[in-house]
């Protein structure tokens, strides 16, 4: 069969997928773009062309800037925490010890727990009056007073990050572990003979194998963290005093609670753009890292 015909056949087989994606993603995206230039409301009338007004208003509003910084803090801290915990866990599980298989099996549990259930669980744990965390730290004698974990801006964001990291570090750990198991034994042994210490061994022997897979995990988790909605919706709904309001929550509020579909659309596209730029930068970093490690 000729190359052109093969390609034609391949396109034909791709067609259902492409049709689906065009209809459910492509068209809505274009329509969001159109809406973002209008003052359309979610129901009822409206929809007059307003040019770049929505963008100008959003980008200059303190609501947007505050929310952007909250989202960035959430994404950076929780992803960093997940990467560090994940790699440490993988290093541990790469050692031989009794119960290792079981422990690796346990890792899948937080990951499999639905996000909403995870959020609900932690909300109960953080309950200011009857929560397990308050009971624990009080009974251990660490504090005397019950704390309002989700009621103080600083601790609320931290509490959310911990809940998010608990669910997601196992994914990083599993990916890192698989990468570690690809490090040939001979290399490790050889470096041992050379008298390399554990840290220099990690740095020069193990790390190069980890970088690629970890970068992929990093990109995936960062994108997800930037889009975060579920866990915040269930745990704080953006409170207290909007200190945990992330971009996705802000769009929901704008487009659905306040019914300003137009300005909600402009904000959503700003987020999409930010995530795309972020992912682009990461991809470049990955290419660089892949180039240097090989």
């Amino acid at each position: 069969m000729s190359g052109t015909r093969l390609t034609m056949r391949a396109w034909l087989m791709m067609l259902p997928l492409l049709v689906v994606m065009t209809a459910i993603v492509g068209w809505p995206l274009l329509d969001t773009l159109r809406l973002s230039f209008t003052d359309a409301r979610l129901v009822g009338t409206g929809g007059d062309w307003v040019g770049l007004d929505n963008y100008a208003r959003m980008l200059s509003s303190s609501r947007f800037l505050d929310t952007l910084s909250t989202t960035t803090i959430f994404a950076v801290v929780s992803v960093t925490l997940e990467m560090v915990l994940g790699v440490l866990t993988a290093l541990l599980l790469n050692q031989a010890f009794y119960g290792r298989t079981l422990l690796r099996a346990l890792l899948i549990l937080p990951w499999a727990l639905p996000t909403v259930v995870n959020a609900t669980l932690w909300r109960l744990i953080y309950n200011p009056q009857y929560g397990a965390l308050n009971a624990l730290v009080t009974q251990l004698g660490l504090t005397t007073d019950y704390q309002s974990w989700l009621g103080q801006p600083a601790s609320a964001l931290t509490a959310l990050i911990i809940a998010d990291a608990w669910k997601n570090f196992p994914l990083v750990a599993l990916i890192a572990l698989a990468a570690l198991q690809m490090v040939p034994r001979e290399i490790t042994s050889a470096s041992l003979v050379d008298g390399a210490g554990p840290f220099s061994r990690f740095r020069h022997v193990t790390l190069p194998y980890l970088v690629g897979p970890l970068m992929v995990a990093l990109v995936l988790r960062t994108i997800e963290a930037f889009k975060v909605f579920d866990i915040i919706w269930v745990m704080t709904r953006g409170g207290p005093a909007n200190s945990t309001r992330t971009l996705s929550i802000l769009v929901y509020q704008e487009a659905f609670s306040f019914q300003r579909a137009g300005s909600g659309a402009s904000l959503a596209l700003i987020i999409a753009l930010l995530v795309t730029v972020l992912a682009g930068v990461y991809t470049m970093l990955i290419r660089k890292a892949a180039g240097s490690s090989s």
């Binding site: 993603v25 329509d31 969001t32 930037f226 889009k227 909605f229 929901y252 487009a255 959503a268 795309t276």
Partner: peptide
């Protein structure tokens, strides 16, 4: 990479 919120309004209307 697209956040679901970027598609939600047209999807809702559609």
């Amino acid at each position: 990479m697209l956040p679901p919120v970027a598609l939600s309004v047209p999807l809702f209307m559609g």
